[in-house]
Each structure stands twice: as structure tokens, then as C-alpha cells.
Design a protein around this nucleic acid. Sequence first.
DNA 1: TTGTTACTATTTTTT
DNA 2: ATAGTAACAA
Length: 802
Amino acid sequence: MGPMLYLVGMATSRKHSANKSTIEAAGTAVAKRSISERALGQPDPGHDTGYLDELNVEQRAAVEALDGPVLVLAGAGTGKTRVLTTRIAHILSTGRARPYEILAVTFTNKAAREMKQRVGQLIGGAVEGMTWLGTFHAICVKVLRRHAELVDLKSGFTILDTDDQIRLLKQLIAAENLDPKRWPARQFAGLIDSWKNRGLRPDQVPAGEAASFANGRGKELYSAYQTRLKELNAADFGDLLLESLRLFQQNPDVLAIYQKRFRYMLVDEYQDTNVAQYLWLRLLAQGSANVACVGDDDQSIYGWRGAEVDNILRFEKDFPGARVFRVEQNYRSSGHILAAASGLIAHNRGRLGKSLFTAIGDGERVGVESHWDDEAEARAIAERIEELRAAGHALNEIAILVRASFQMRAFEDRFVTLGLPYRVIGGPRFYERAEIRDATAYFEITLNPANDLKFERIANTPKRGLGQASLQKIQRHAKARGIPIYFAAREIIETDELGPRQRRTLADLIATFERWRALIDDLPHTELAELILDESGLTAMWQRDKSPQAHSRLENLKELVRFMEAFESLAGFMEHVSLVMSAESESDGDRVSLMTLHAAKGLEFDTVFLPGWEEGLFPHQRALDESGLAGLEEERRLAYVGLTRARRRAQVCFAQNRRVHALWQSAIASRFVDELPEDHVEVVEGPGGGGGGNFGGYATSRFANAGHGFGGSHHTPGWQRAQRHQKSAKTGGPRSSPTIEGELVAAGDVSSTRFGAGERVVHQKFGEGTIVEVDGNKLLIAFDGGSNKRVVASFVQPAGSA
DNA sequence: TTGTTACTATTTTTT
DNA sequence: ATAGTAACAA
């Protein structure tokens, strides 16, 4: 069905007659396109603009509109980054600006890196001159370091990470004699963050909101927090933006410098900007007004952390004379997938409207399938993956996108038992891991003893008998003398304030730091780092640790030192650490990717599995409760993002029963499932097609629709239902028999293993255990953690073999 | 000061 | 269920 150029998606927006014309325009685009494309295909005489030939008409128009405000609405897979990078190349090659006169902002370091690299491909070494290409935060830091004194900071200010922030807030809450249980620091951190996202300083917070925390003392507390930050010469992430905004607002002369400097401005993912970023940008754009924002309102999925879709919807009003370009040819997905995604997103009301089309052809329809529960779901998907692999598909081209990270467990369990290589994307970032934070805290104090929060972090890590009692004494002394804790500690060891034992350990610690500090200039920084890791006892601490992750933590520490080699000095490295909170390294091997939908934005795969499309989970109940219709629409955009990640195959599924927390709940299909346009969907119906051998019970756990599921086929005993009613069950089936039918796969590789029953082994995820039974290449292991699992032999190692 | 037990919250996540 | 945290006891 369908013409070569497949047209999909209706621009659905109540407003703008413009959208109507979009539909019509899209209708005629097929014919017009090829003609105008040919017409424009001729190289523009005069300039060396070969890079423009790579673009289609729409992209090219967006690139060539250099003057004045421009909004580029670039749908999923339409070459958004290409437009941005080519635009930069165009500005440079037409001599409109020098590299350092272009401001290009992204949200993530990854995006910044990619942009830099791709601009480099277009224009060569000149990218190095693009000093103002980076994340909002990185650019703000750069500005703030130059003018720190104007916002009550010193140029060497430190950037607080989340841990530091929480620790500080805890202290403040305690100082105000508030019940830390009733007023958790975490929650307050979130509140402050949301204020900062909206560009609100303490005096600007609406009274009602400020009163909502700490018995109405929220505002005072926020204010106290800011004061404390200045005392510590520190800024949190929100401050980077907020303070540079204040800098511009309160110092017109400084603002003028940057307005003049940035002749051209480009913003990536504009739909993700928050109010503070918007205000910041608008101030700067009042200079040259050559601001180009690229984004897709349909992919705005970060509303919950302050992003304002409104920014993109309002663009034409905010930037008078703005021109809007739509880039609508999708180069990623085949027809049915794109059509399904477009049909789904058409249910949203507040959107600018786009009609994506693809020339790739119809391809496969989007599969819709239901399963009995989350385990059956994982089993079925893993099975499909095995099939794809057997058919020659690379695992790297397969992804499973979930709504919430707890869903990953079922898949991980399944993959581990099958021995299917997978990788989890997202999760705790490298620099957020405890061992890395501890290590960097030691580095930081060596460089900068005045960093109180870091000192507090490691004073008793590893445990050295300096508990909170001692720490409090030091803190009190520091406060009384008005000096940083480190120096207070150095003074207090001269007194009898502490017990003799604590006094000695503290003196030791301080002396060690002094010794390290003396070595900064004499020792290569990586060697110093290794020395610090050893002498601090951190290495020993993890070597002693018997938990299954201890080994990987040690690996991480080694990785950290390796990572440092890329920097010139310890100080250079530390500056980097505070801003670049990611260091992905493991991209090796052919693996299935497992991640949240949020983490998937910007990625693409041949095959995408979208499990868990159930009411309450997706759309998530909380999104609905907290944000109503807006929340629902954001969830729908998330579904849209998920579908549009797929190039050739997308498989949606939902479970009829899902364990939420501890108890089983019956689930109903997500409304999004029924919003998919029927013509582009392939429903896997009923148990009829099953009968896959002896394991029919699992192979046939596919029902057309939940709700009507006559789930009681031969292999679905009543215990599930029983479970639902009497949620007492201690040994729910899943736990005690995790992998009854592990035989389904891995049958090809039954070579005996080097293991025997009774041997001690280590598993990366489950820790140590004893082999109970050997069955081909699969081992039944009683893990010390108390669980019995069946695991493929290649996933374990003999215990004790480092 | 450290280790134990009780209690609670549990979407998404960058900088 | 479970993990992370906070109060409590040794």
C-alpha cells in the first residue's frame, strides 16, 4: 500500500490556519519536491558551498536563512544535527563570523561533542576556534569565571555536585531546628532546583510556594542556602545559569560585551530549554538577533525537570520577525513505523504540527502483542531477539526501551540466564558512583583544602574512627573561628579537644594531605592520584570488601586514573569533573541495548522493543496525577520518541499482570496502544498460533488484548489470581523458579564446562555462590545472597580468581 | 563509634 | 521486595 513517498501524519492543532496549509503543502510536496530539488541542485556559483548539496530543500532553506531569528522545527530523524552543523559551516565559510563569534549551545556534553566533531568534518581544524560551543552550563561557567566578583564569587569557585548540595541543605535544615524527616533535604533540593529552573532568586519566589516548605520558612531557607554558597565560594548547577543571568541583568556593560561577541547563536533541542535558559538566551539575542533554535515540540520529554515546551510554541512571539522552517523528510524509519508514530502523536493538542514523510517504503508494521506478565514479556522479547540474531541481525541494532528503570530487571534476569550479551545505557553515571566521588573528594582537598563539603564527605571514609561526634567538634571550632574545616582540624589537633585516638588519626590525615599537596608539582598527576588512592586507604577498603561489586569498583578507580591521563594536571582534570558528569567507555562488543525511553532520545536502532505499555505505567500514573493533561501529552510524546527510534522494526507490548512493588496487579493496555492507527499495526492475536513444542505454556502466552484475555489456558494455574487477592504469598512463583524453561535457548552450545557441582564461583551480578548442579553449559548456583539461579557457565568465574 | 534494626519511599535525569 | 536512611543499642 501507499505510494513511494509515503505521506503520514496529520498536523493536528486547533489553532493556526498555517497548519491547514501544512497539510495541503504536504499533499503536493511529492511532486514539487523533485522539481524544486532539481532546480536547486545546481551549485551556487561564487561560493564554495559544496556542503549545501548534501541537504534537501527544507534543510537547505533552514541553513541559508542566516539573518534574524529562526526556528527550525525538525521532526524525529529529519537530520536536525546536520542542519545545525551545516549552518555553522555556512556562517563560517561565507565569512559572516569567526569561529569564536558563534555561540552554539546544547544540553548534554555528548551532543556538544558530536556537534564539534561533525562541524570539524565540514570545515576542518577551524572548529578548535569555536570556544563557545558547549552545554549551557559549560558556557555559563566560562562567563562566570571571568566576572565572578560581580556575582559575589571568586573566580576559582567550586561547583557543587548533588551530594554536596544535599549535605549542605541537611546542615541548614538542622540549623533551623526543623525535623529532617518531615522536611527532607532531597525534596528541598528539588524545590530549589525548580525555582532556579524558572529563574527565580529567593526574593522572587512566589510567597505561596515558598511557604510550602519548612512551615513557611522555605524562602528563608533558600536565602540562607544562597548565602552559605557564597561563603563557601561555591555554586550549584542551577546557579551556573541563574547567576550568569543575574550577571547579565545587573551589568549592562558586561551583557553588551557578549551581545557584541556572539554574532550568531544556535541552540539545539530548544524544546528542552527552561525559563532561566530562555531568559539568558533572549538577553543575548537582543544583540545581533541572529539566533537559530532547532527543536521538535513533539519530542519535549523533560517538562518534569523544568523544560518549557511553551518556549518553542511561543517562539514567534518572543522573537519578533522570526521565520519558522519545517524539516519534514524523515530519513530514519520506514513508512508504517513513521505512520504509527505520527498517528499517535496526532492525539496531542498543543503542538505546532508537522507532517513527516519518508521515502524508505512501507516496511513492516508495528507489532502489538500482549503477555501474561512481565516475565513472559521478557521471555518473548528475548526469544525474538534470539531469532533476529539467528537471522543475522546485529545485537547492536536492537534496543529495548522501557518507561521506568525497574522494568529492566526482568530483562536483565532473562538475558543473564540466556547468556545474551546486553548493555544498560544510563543508570548511575561514572562520576556519580560512590568510589569515584570519594576519590575525587581526596583529589579536591589535596588541591583545595578549603572545600568543606568534600572534607566532610571523606573525613571518615574509609572508616578511621572519626565519627560524627568528632566531626561536629571540628565543625564547631571552624564556625567559631570562621575558617574552613580543614584548617580548623589542623588547629584542633594541637589541643586536647578530641580523644587521644581521634586526635592521632586526624593529625595523620592532615599530615598526609599536606604531604600530597607538597607533591603536586613534583609528581606526574596520575602517579600522585595513584599514591592518594593507596595511601588514603580507598583501594584497601574495596579490596577488603566482599560484596560482588567491589571488584568493579576497583576497576572504576583504575579507570579514573587512566581517564586522567588525558589531562595536563590534576587541577585541569578536576575542573572537568565538575561539569562533565559522564565518561562512557564501554561500547565494545555486539550487545542488545537496554535503556529508558528518556535515555533513548537522539539514538536509533533497526529494531526497537517497547514493553510495558500499560495504563498506570505508561502513561505513568504519577505524570497524570501531577500534571493532568499536560502530563498525559508528555507521556504521549515519550511514546512518540520511542517509536521513532526504530528504523525497520518496532514491537509494542503490554502485560496483563505486573508486579508493582511487591504485589501483583492486573494491568490494562495503555490508551496509547489503541491510539496507534490500525492500518499500520500488526496485532499478534490469541493463543491459536502458539503450540511451540512442549513449552506451549510460554509460547502461547500471547493474547490479543488484555481485558478479554481468557488467560486460563493449560499452563496458567490459578495462583496468579490467588496472588492478586491474597497478597500474602512469600514465595511467588517467579522467585522460586526463575528459569524453568531455560532449555528454550542455548541448546546449540551444550559443550560441557570446566565446572563441577560443589565448586565456589563468582558471578558479576549475583556475587559468590556454590554450584548445586551442572547441566550442559548451564549451572544451578546457590548464591550466598540466598537465591538460586540458573546461569550460563560463561558468566561465572571460579571464586578467588581475580 | 560502630553495627543493628526500623521505617519509608519507590518515573523519567543533565549539568 | 528492596534499598537507602535514620534512630537506637552495644
